[in-house]
């Protein structure tokens, strides 16, 4: 198993983001997490990515308890996280943002030299080639378009080469055509490299088309956990139920 969550819950102060939830994700599986805003998708992904620790319960990543994996090289080899805001350094050239994925493996001197004369440039080139922006190697990241920056973030993950990729709303800011391109790219990489992929999405259609398994979250609870083909319109309707959506709005407003 790549990920095992055992009765995991997460609360921020008195706000419960995730009620006790258990989930297992096999190596090589592609899993989409869907649900309305505020359902706890990001919290779940942050737990899988080792970004936050659970309030209760246990998270296991590749058979190791998350508590024993502080942010660092070991965790970086297991999971790579792509945040919604990408979190690139806009002032650096794309090549340095991509090669930042190697920092866990590099010594300090090598990282310093690389800022002047990029090391292992063939890795950066191969990664940028794969995401389709090979020609942007030395472009300042701030000058790239949103879609291109997303690809730089993906290239950084490719260079980091973790066993699993966790992507939080990877297509939230893209138009429909570009969203399909990116998901194709992302799931293609997972398939070709045998990586586990967990991504949160708003669109059920996209989730059904590109992922093998779909988990529905609703107000911090597991609504369903099914093979993509088994997710019916009824499931979706219940997930976004209008009545209770009014409740969601009220709780969101109260926050």
């Amino acid at each position: 198993m790549m990920f095992v969550l055992d009765a995991v819950s997460k609360a921020y102060g008195s706000t419960v983001a995730l009620h006790p939830l258990s989930l297992a994700v096999a190596r090589g599986e592609t899993l989409a997490v869907v649900g309305p805003s505020g359902a706890g998708k990001t919290t779940l992904l942050h737990l899988l990515g080792g970004v936050t620790q659970p309030s209760a319960g246990a998270v296991w990543i590749a058979g190791r308890p998350l508590a024993s994996l502080p942010p660092g090289r070991e965790l970086a080899r297991l999971v790579g996280v792509m945040h919604q805001q990408l979190d690139l350094v806009p002032h650096l050239a794309a090549v340095h943002n991509v090669l930042a994925g190697r920092l866990g493996e590099w010594r300090l001197l090598r990282s310093l030299v690389s800022l002047v004369a990029p090391r292992e440039i063939e890795r950066a080139l191969a990664a940028l080639e794969r995401v389709g922006i090979r020609d942007k190697l030395y472009e300042r990241t701030a000058r790239l378009s949103g879609g291109e920056q997303q690809r730089v973030a993906l290239a950084r993950l490719l260079v980091q080469d973790p066993a699993a990729i966790v992507a939080d709303e990877p297509v939230a800011s893209l138009d429909p055509a570009r969203a399909e391109d990116l998901l194709q790219l992302l799931t293609g990489i997972a398939r070709d490299d045998g990586k586990t992929l967990v991504a949160s999405l708003h669109s059920i259609q996209l989730a059904r088309r590109y992922f093998a398994r779909i988990v529905g979250l609703r107000r911090g609870r597991l609504a369903f956990d099914l093979p993509a083909a088994a997710v019916s319109q009824a499931h979706v309707d219940r997930l976004y139920d209008l009545d209770e959506r009014a409740d969601d709005l009220a709780t969101a407003a109260a926050r």
């Binding site: 080792g50 070991e74 970086a76 350094v89 930042a100 920092l103 590099w106 800022l115 980091q160």
Partner: peptide, 17 residues
């Protein structure tokens, strides 16, 4: 945080971030 998540040390975070 993203740099630390890719395994960077604080010195590397200083240089790259």
């Amino acid at each position: 945080r993203a740099l630390r998540a890719s395994g960077a040390s604080e010195w590397q975070v200083l240089l790259y971030g």
